[in-house]
Structures are given as C-alpha cells and as structure tokens.
Design a protein around this nucleic acid. Structure first.
Length: 360
DNA sequence: TCTGGGGTCCTAGGACCC
DNA sequence: TCTGGGGTCCTAGGACCC
C-alpha cells in the first residue's frame, strides 16, 4: 500500500458527526436542536464542537462559545463531548471504507480521502455512502475531485448526504467568483492580507502575480496559495498510518489562575497527563512547549529543545518549569498548555518535516 | 459574543560558525 | 577597526484545520 496516485479522489465527510453519533444512542434526539460541546454545561467556558442542522438554523456553528449558542437556541439539548464514543464510531467508518478494497487516507475523526481508479466515480461514491450507512447508520457526503483540493471543496456542495463533482473543467465556473476564504487553507488572516493586494476572489488569486504572493507569504506558502487559486493539488492518496509528531494537553480554567503556586501545580498536572500519552507511543520526547493564555485574551508560546531525548517525568517537568519562568508575573492566566514532541519511530530527525503532508 | 482542545506546517530572526 | 556572505541550528510565533 502506501501513497498512490489516483484517477479520482473522493472526500468522504460524515454529516454532523458528533451529533449523529449521539442520536444513535438516543434516537429521540433526531430532528431536535442538539449541540455537542465542552462538558455540556453552557455556563462554563467552552465552545460548540458540533451542532445539529436544526440548531444551525438558529445561527449556531462550530467554535461558537457554548454560552452564546445556548442563548440563541433556548430549547437546545446540550451534550458533553464523548471522545471515546466518537473514536469508536470513526474507526468503524474507516474500517468500512477499507473493507470496500479502497485506499483510505484518514484526515480526522469524520473525514477521509479515498482513491478511485474507475472511469466513472459517481457509482463508487454512492456505494461508499450505502456501505457506511449500512454498517454504521451514519450518513456521509462525498466530494469527487481530480485532486484532493477539489474533492475536499466539492464536499461542501454535496451536504447533506449528497455527492458533488468538482474538476479542473468546472473549477472557475463553481469557485471563480467566491471569496478566497472559501478555499481550504485560507483563513481570516490570509484572506485579509490577500485583499490588501486587491485579491478578493478565487479567480483573482489564480491570476495573481506569483512574485507578489511569494513576497507576501514566503516561497512555500506563496506558491501554495497560487496553486490553490487554480484548485491545483496532489491526487496522491496515502494510506500509511499516521504517526503523531507530538502530544499536548491544555486546559482553560473556569477561574483564572492568579498565583505562581497555582500555575506550577497546574503545569505539573499537565506534564503528567502529556507523559501518559507519550508513554503509550514508546518514543522519547525531544522538545517541550508551553502555551499560555493570559486574561482577557492574549496567547504566548514557548518551546525548548531538550539536551537529550527523554521520557523522565522529572526532566520534562523541570524543562516546562524553566519555560514557565519566562511567563509574565502577576498576570492572570486563563489557559495553560503543555506540548511534547517526540522522536520519530524510525529514529529520523523529528525536525525533518514530511513536505506538506498535513496540508495535503 | 467571547472565544476549547488536539493537531499540523511555515516563517522570521537571532546566535553562532567559517 | 569595521566588516562580507553564506550556512546551520534554534526559538518564538503565526496560521490553519477538525
């Protein structure tokens, strides 16, 4: 197996995944405004992970503070995030796809690329939907593309439970007049920076001078955004199991931390949690990171390469406390995060990035 | 309105070396 | 005394995704 170029790429995306899994357990929730987020308590600091289509009709979406969501939909049923349950459902879906004899590249809990070499991809897409529905009772949408970028963007036009094809031929007709932020990998910041150069639509991005993009975003990202305007991208689907670069834990405190003692205790706790994830991987840590969000909303990151890779709790704790010594004294802290990056399993240099793997 | 938690990759710039 | 150009390594931080 491993990476292979495909004639067609399918992007399989489960519809309202977290909510759909909850409905499997509690069928009476079907058709109701359901929101999954945090610990299910809208008075806490937390955000919406997934909202049902009924809740979305009230303007609720992923990433919205739970408190605001609850205000918009007073009748909402708000449920806590249950990672274990979603992981199990996700594994069932991915196994079903592999069971069809297809190459499957897992992108997240609820989505995957699938390589298809058939002349006509639509029958395969429908077969995928039927297989997933039959095995798991979950609905999915399928985007079809001549590469991964177009397949991924196509899915949005197929939701819910549909199939949509987007290729080089239809790219500009479908996407040309849309704002750049509709592209996968262009967010609020980049779309603003593009707009400052007069680039507002996908067609304008495609027509943009490469030198301008490179000067603004650097050689790699500049070229990447240029390609994105054309919908150009890789059609290689890679089913090599993903190896995590690292693990992290972060916590937003319901009450801000105010004393150095509170901060240190919280950090010791987070390091121990991260180490538990690291132990499961059987690989030592070569770099630790510290993320701090001060009140009201200002985030800083620190990182430090260790003198030698280690898995010792004492070593990792002292490294993190060293980083913490540079925190601003006397400021209230609302979030702390600890990250550990691990040596790759083959012993290869962990700083050697697989080119553009995460960005497809 | 008030902003989670888990990830990935890229860039700028300083330190240091030849 | 003031100074080049190139390279590597490292940290801080930015941006994006689900």
């Amino acid at each position: 197996m491993g990476p292979r170029a495909s004639r067609w790429v399918l992007h399989v995306d489960l519809d309202q995944f977290l909510v759909a899994v909850e409905i499997l357990r509690r069928p009476e929730l079907a058709g109701k405004p359901v929101i999954v987020g945090g610990r299910g308590d809208p008075t806490e600091r937390a955000v919406v992970s997934t909202a049902s289509y009924e809740a979305r009709a009230f303007g609720v979406g992923s990433g919205m503070p739970l408190r605001i969501a609850a205000r918009k939909v007073p009748d909402a049923i708000i449920l806590p995030v249950d990672r274990e349950e979603y992981l199990a459902a996700s594994a069932h879906v991915m196994d079903t796809l592999r069971g069809l004899g297809l190459v499957v590249e897992v992108l997240g809990w609820d989505e995957a690329f699938v390589g298809v070499d058939a002349e006509e991809p639509e029958p395969v897409a429908h077969r995928v939907q039927q297989a997933v529905l039959g095995a798991t009772a979950l609905h999915c949408s399928v985007g079809i593309g001549d590469n991964k970028i177009r397949a991924k963007i196509a899915t949005g036009f197929g939701k819910p439970a549909g199939v949509y094809r987007l290729t080089a031929e239809s790219w500009f007709e479908v996407m040309g007049e849309r704002p750049t932020i509709d592209l996968w990998g262009v967010g609020a910041k980049v779309s603003k920076r593009l707009a400052a150069h007069g680039i507002r639509t996908v067609a304008e991005l495609a027509a943009a001078d490469l030198d301008v993009l490179v000067a603004e975003f650097g050689p790699r990202m500049g070229a990447w955004y240029g390609d994105l305007g054309h919908g150009r991208g890789s059609a290689v689907v890679d089913d090599t199991p993903w190896v995590a670069r690292g693990h992290s834990r972060e916590t937003t405190y319901q009450r801000n931390l105010t004393t150095p003692q509170e901060v240190e205790a919280a950090l010791r706790d987070l390091v121990a949690q991260v180490l538990a994830d690291v132990e499961a991987e059987d690989r030592p840590v070569f770099r630790v990171g510290l993320k701090v969000r001060y009140a009201p909303f200002f985030t800083q990151n620190r990182s430090k390469k260790l003198a030698a890779p280690t898995r010792s709790l004492d070593d990792l704790t002292s490294a993190v406390l060293t980083l913490a010594a540079t925190m601003e004294p006397g400021r209230e802290v609302r979030l702390l995060g600890v990250r550990a990056e691990m040596v790759m399993p083959d012993g290869g240099d962990p700083l050697e990035r697989t080119p553009a793997r995460g960005r497809i």
